[in-house]
Design a binder for these strands. Structure first.
Length: 270
DNA sequence: AATGGGACCTGCGCGC
DNA sequence: TGCGCGCAGGTCCCAT
């Protein structure tokens, strides 16, 4: 579910509401959601801490928490395919509920249970963050081209590899490739410098537009307010198998790449 | 070392 | 109506 734009939307919406709040209690309805420690430990460590900051790295949300003894640690939220963070929450679908001292609550919902809540003294110590690729917005064209030239898989699989570039998932890989006319099955190391620059621009454009429209709501993803994101109305290829290409009026195709549904226009994307 | 496939989950829509 | 299958914004682990 949530890719970079969805995580960014949630982050932007939660920051003004939650920074400064004190966690009074945690209700764990589904233990599987907690991956770093026992649920008892999880509860004990979070209770009484206050939220100092909320930021994003790739698709992950990171809460910086301040203990009563003045030390910091981190709660990492990975939303998986169906995770939601709802504030204020009513607990109706929550796997985990964070109750604040002002009696409001943050719900972590996750129908498919693929999301994860992780506690770490420093998130940068976790394997995932150690290996995570650069944020797309910080990439320079020359560096991007060099990265591409070292990869042998198809370009779409490379874009979705979090250790290659952070935050891009199935929707935005497809949308970015369509918008710059590059086929998802192109070998990554076959891209010319000019194509690589077009792709980087396209990726940045699509991600920024998606953030502007508060993400793509297809099935599960919603904003922290519970409202839908509207970028899905602007998808040009994702989920449009058999429909007409907006550019050439040919048919949008769906194929599987590394097991993931991949939408593209065979005429417009070479 | 990199790559592809299966596993982890729940729930929906489809065809038979 | 009911069942089995395929599919879904992600990531990890394992065999090759």
């Amino acid at each position: 579910m949530p890719e970079l734009p969805e995580a960014e939307t949630i982050k932007r919406e939660l920051r003004p509401k939650l920074i400064g709040k004190k966690i009074a209690d945690i209700a764990i309805r589904k233990r599987r959601a907690i991956r770093s420690s026992s649920s008892k430990e999880f509860n004990k460590r979070l209770k009484g801490t206050s939220i100092r900051d909320i930021f994003r790295r790739g698709k992950a949300l990171i809460f910086k928490l301040l203990k009563e003894n003045g030390r910091f640690f981190y709660l990492i939220v990975r939303l998986g395919m169906s995770g939601q963070l709802i504030y204020p929450g009513n607990g109706s679908k929550a796997r985990v509920i964070f109750k604040f001292s002002d009696n409001s609550a943050l719900d972590f919902n996750d129908q498919r249970l693929l999301g994860e809540l992780i506690i770490a003294d420093d998130y940068r110590d976790l394997n995932f963050f150690k290996k995570l690729g650069p944020e797309p917005f910080n990439l320079r064209p020359r560096d991007f081209f060099n990265m591409l030239s070292r990869r042998k898989t198809n370009i779409k699989t490379a874009l979705m590899d979090q250790f290659f570039i952070a935050g891009v998932g199935n929707i935005y890989a497809a949308e970015a490739l369509f918008r710059c006319g590059i086929s998802p099955i192109r070998k990554t190391n076959s891209l010319k410098p000019r194509e690589s620059e077009k792709l980087l621009k396209s990726l940045n454009f699509v991600l920024r537009q998606a953030i502007k429209h508060k993400g793509s709501s297809i099935d599960q993803y919603v904003r922290s307010s519970g409202e839908k994101g509207s970028f899905s109305e602007r998808h040009l290829v994702y989920g449009r198998e058999g429909k007409l290409c907006f550019i050439c009026k040919g048919g949008i195709k769906r194929i599987a790449l590394s097991g993931r549904g991949t939408y593209f226009c065979p005429k417009c994307q070479k």
